[in-house]
Design a protein around this nucleic acid. Structure first.
Lengths: 201, 201
DNA sequence: CTCCTAGCGTGATGTACATCACGCCAAACT
DNA sequence: AGTTTGGCGTGATGTACATCACGCTAGGAG
């Protein structure tokens, strides 16, 4: 009993503080407001290899990553997997299109490491945004940054060779190279594993 | 004198109504609010081939397209041009990264047709958003849609052949094919003009 | 200890593109 | 009318990649 209290108490406190810090980078919240926000979320832990979203299924949640590493990917008709993004701490992620429109997922979201996320349902999300516009502001701001980052990536894909894109990735996310294997990096860069291997050796 | 009054009167009224309609698809505005919003913008007309943003220059405005067609593009180190997007009526466009951070443009924005835009400076934009959060909401919402669209394009670039991407483009923006020549379409699709020509013939 | 699998490198071959070069045509310019 | 220019198609050739096939190594599971 004591152990349970201690551990879960410590744990949620840390998680909550992290979440709040992330929010407060963009908006400010009173204690009451933060408690209200929190009441819309559930915290969940997922193990490496677990799926948060499966391609083809309905998408009822969007996720805020507290720790760990997720992969948002699409498997095409030829069974080739393409990685849209790696979602790390402080990322807000889902299959946005499916979540927004209520259609089925065209992407999968799964764990490359054990991962902790705050989850919110479409309905709670709607309620939260209606009650607290600044939370929607926070969310949209994040998405705006994502848009800018995505433009850069698109440009890289259009104008750079595989070797150049790899170099750019090294610069921008040096930590990624430690955390994910080269097969995944290749799927992100849009080249085959073999080609990436030849580039690096 | 009569002619001037008539023409310019008609013109701005039409433009303004268009602008307001676009806003009201996402937010609602009173007449007073709309007038206040308008006071932050200037309306400008540009001729085909004119530049609104030149790669390398500071970016002090963001633009709302009322009519016409713009191209947002990047010219790489090998003098090859890549098109990030064609901005049509109802699009909000700029070099977002440069506009947001105050750095110089890494992209150019120019007219493929005679074009009418509402312009807003960084400073007026800041003031407007501060005074009317729902305008920021409108803007960020637009950007969120843009983000979703961009994800789809990234996926197409990663997983589809040039021929497939051309077909998808035909589906999604049939009107574009009438309005822009094949050299530009090729630059958008990320293939050479010759390859695109072979695909279509 | 042995087997099995995941991760990685590497050779041989195939292919979807880019590049270069050219010619045709229609519209615009003088 | 003659010349120029922009848009487009097309052949020949080059190349950056994908694909297939294989072998090596290290860590985990029986």
């Amino acid at each position: 009993m004591f152990g349970k209290l201690l551990i879960s108490g410590l744990f949620t406190t840390t998680m909550q503080e992290k979440l709040r810090e992330h929010f407060e980078k963009i908006i400010s919240l009173t204690d009451e407001e933060f408690a209200f926000v929190l009441s819309h979320f559930t915290f969940r832990k997922f193990k490496k290899h677990q799926y948060l979203i499966q391609q083809g299924d309905p998408v009822n949640h969007t996720f805020f990553v507290v720790s760990g590493l997720l992969r948002l990917s699409h498997t095409d008709a030829n069974d080739k997997e393409h990685i849209l993004l790696f979602a790390m701490e402080d990322w807000w992620v889902s299959d946005d299109h499916a979540f927004l429109t209520g259609t089925n997922a065209t992407m999968s979201l799964d764990c490359l490491e054990d991962t902790g996320v705050f989850c919110i349902t479409r309905e709670d999300n709607r309620k939260l945004f209606a009650a607290m516009p600044k939370m929607e502001h926070f969310f949209l701001k994040k998405s705006h940054f994502g848009y800018i980052a995505l433009q850069r990536r698109l440009l890289a894909l259009l104008s750079s060779s595989a070797a150049e894109r790899y170099q750019q990735l090294l610069m921008q996310y040096p930590s990624l190279i430690q955390r994910v294997n080269k097969t995944l990096l290749a799927a992100y860069l849009g080249v085959s594993r073999e080609t990436l291997s030849r580039l690096t050796s």
